[in-house]
């Protein structure tokens, strides 16, 4: 059984308008998304901004209301469990936020930030709590003496580590990482990513990794889902997506990854031009009248693509 299964998830936001502010239409931020993640694996959710990847993550953790669909965590539907059960389940799902500055309360000391989940779920004495926080600080590679400092005394990378320490404080099973490094300097990004892989092995964590950066996704993920306008365009193993992309949108995204080797520059440029002309030619076939991708069709056991309906 997968750790988490998402079935036909939809998140719609109302658009209000007119004299009496009545609901005129809906923004279909997430419009029928399904995937599942195995224990200990990393699942990557990719898409441009506005594709609904962040909303998907937020819906799973309960920050956005689910319009329809199911989220099964260890077989339990999060929408239908009792409130008491939900609080327990929620303990097992934690989140790492994009912005290391706004995600830590500037008025709180590190010890209060990291201990916040502990105070909600575990009744520890003051001393036990301090020891646990210091352990967590050590685990994320920060000095245990720093627990009485305030967030603004740390660098962006260090703050993100504090955010991670807070997220793993309750020994969760699933961590939703929403663009965890995109606000950091490139030099710090790799450090944080490698550190995330290290604690994944140590603590047997499962990641839902949300990013717009395919390079990072390739580095981190076992399975990948590519989203466009709230729907999936392609889904498969990392290998399948990167070596055998089927959807023109995926192809274009992959072609857009910069190549660091200057010798290949001409070649890379030619390839990108080719992909672009193919995209322009086939755009009408791959998207419906509203510009949305079609539903997924399996081309192998693990690989699904939103191929055109006709032909």
């Amino acid at each position: 059984m997968s750790l988490i299964e998402v079935e036909n998830l939809k998140v719609h936001f109302p658009i209000r308008g007119g004299v009496f502010q009545t609901v005129k239409d809906h923004v279909r931020a997430v419009d029928g998304v399904s995937f599942s993640i195995e224990q200990g694996q990393t699942y990557g959710l990719v898409g441009e901004s506005g594709s609904g990847k962040t909303t998907t993550g937020r819906a799973i953790i309960g920050l956005n209301d689910i319009t329809s669909g199911k989220v099964l965590f260890e077989g339990k539907d999060l929408a239908s469990v009792s409130k008491k059960e939900y609080i327990d389940v929620r303990k097992d799902i934690q989140m790492i936020f994009q912005d290391p500055f706004s995600s830590l309360n500037p008025k709180k000391r590190v010890v209060d930030i990291v201990a916040e989940p502990l105070r909600n779920y575990e009744k520890l004495s003051g001393k036990e709590e301090r020891i646990r926080v210091q352990e967590l600080m050590e685990l994320v590679g920060l000095s245990p003496e720093a627990i009485y400092k305030y967030p603004h005394e740390f660098s962006g990378g260090q703050r993100q580590r504090i955010g991670i320490a807070r997220a793993i404080a309750l020994n969760p099973k699933l961590i939703i990482a929403d663009e965890p490094v995109s606000a950091l300097d490139v030099s710090v990004q790799a450090q944080v990513l490698n550190f995330m892989r290290k604690i994944q092995k140590e603590l047997n964590l499962t990641y839902l990794f949300i990013s717009h950066d395919l390079g990072i996704i390739r580095h981190m993920c076992d399975h990948i889902g590519i989203m466009y306008k709230g729907r999936y365009v392609e889904h498969g193993t990392s290998e399948e997506i990167f070596t055998n992309p089927q959807h023109i949108y995926t192809k274009r995204l992959i072609a857009a990854i910069p190549d660091s080797d200057p010798k290949n520059r001409e070649l890379h440029y030619e390839k990108r031009k080719l992909v672009k002309s193919e995209y322009d030619k086939l755009e009408k076939d791959f998207f419906d009248e509203e510009g949305l991708p079609f539903s997924l069709k399996s081309i192998s056991a693990t690989h699904q693509v939103a191929l055109p309906e006709r032909g």
Binding site: I61, L63, S102, L104, E116, G163
Partner: peptide
């Protein structure tokens, strides 16, 4: 709207 409020929510506060 800041993430620290959202973080607190996900932490069960």
């Amino acid at each position: 709207e800041l993430d620290y409020v959202k973080a607190s929510k996900t932490l069960g506060t």
